[in-house]
Computed example of a mutant assay.
Amino acid sequence: MVHPPQRTSSRTSLRTSPRTSLSGPALVRLLSRLGETEVQASPQPLADRLSQWLGWTDAIALSTVLAAPAPAVVGGALASGEDEAQRCLSLRSALSKAIALDGVLAPAKARRSGSYGLARASQQAPVPPPPETDETDADYAVFRQCYIALQQKMETDIGDLRGRLRSRLAAVSPAMAKLATLDATMERSLAARERSLLGAVPGLLGAHFERLRKGAREAAAREAAAREAAAREAAAREAMAHEAATLAATAQASPIGATAPGAWLDAFRKDVQSVLLAELDVRFQPVEGLLAALRAR
């Protein structure tokens, strides 16, 4: 487990010690990088950290499940572990494609060409693509709505799959049935905490969006000032020189270091997709545990 990211001064961190490599989930590492924060591994064991997330009613419920005898096996036809593995793989692939092909998160070039529309035609589109904006007029509220919609889709679809796997485990053996009951109890106990933590991600991305937009505005102002200065210099030189055509061509060919319009927004879209895929990994961990138990029967 890791502590939540905490903002630190970049100058202070450079003067002290370099960042230690964090071995936590990719989601935490990615949010730490995008938020320019320092994350440290928790010295507490996992069990101790989890105990802080559980209320006394949750602890009683878990204790009751652990102390109770294994439930009877529910009869019925069983799907093989490999069948369920394929189902899990299909859902994960579908959710990954929903993130990769979402119209709001498509790069500007794809949005202008409309190439994302065909890929999206077979999917439900909870959020329409935002109107095309040049650069710094983009509205983060559209991206926030898109992120929350994809979060809800992941929560619903993965929750349904998790329940299905528990039903399959309950039909295998008393020990597996008890594991399924324990997983259901853990899901209920940690659901509020999980929603709270993952619900904070759009806010962190909003701060990242504003930093990128501010940097784009500052870069655009610098480029405009450089162009204006170059134009003034070219005009002055043209007035004093006899070879006006040569000087004008030279000034026109001089690079200003301009940034491609909307580059910062495309970079942000890619960052949002990376965070969503990392969140998908986190949400799939309980499913992978249940699947491993089912395949080991």
Rank of each mutant, 00 (worst) to 15 (best):
H242A: 15
A59N: 14
P43M: 07
A220C: 01
W56E: 15
A180V: 02
A221N: 07
S21R: 15
R193L: 03
I158N: 03
Q152V: 00
S42T: 10
K97W: 05
H242T: 15
E223P: 06
D134I: 06
Q145R: 14
Q86N: 15
P45D: 15
V287W: 07
L30C: 02
L291I: 06
R237S: 08
S21V: 13
E84Y: 15
A225Y: 05
A184Q: 12
A230T: 04
A67C: 05
A175L: 07
A61M: 05
R195M: 10
D58G: 04
L118G: 14
L290P: 03
P255F: 00
Q273P: 03
L182P: 02
L62M: 11
R211Q: 08
E132P: 09
L50A: 13
E218G: 00
Q145W: 06
A263S: 13
L265M: 11
A248N: 10
R297D: 04
R162M: 09
G163F: 02
A68M: 04
M1F: 10
A85T: 08
D48C: 07
A61C: 05
A138Q: 08
A47M: 13
L179F: 06
D183G: 00
A171M: 08
L95W: 03
L54I: 09
T259M: 04
L46C: 08
L66I: 02
E155T: 11
A184W: 05
V201I: 15
V275N: 06
R188K: 14
A293H: 01
H242S: 15
G163A: 11
A245G: 12
D281S: 14
A61W: 06
L294D: 04
P45N: 13
S10H: 11
L212Y: 00
W53N: 09
T12S: 10
E210R: 10
P202T: 03
L46P: 06
A245P: 05
R232T: 08
A220L: 05
A224N: 07
V65Y: 03
M154N: 09
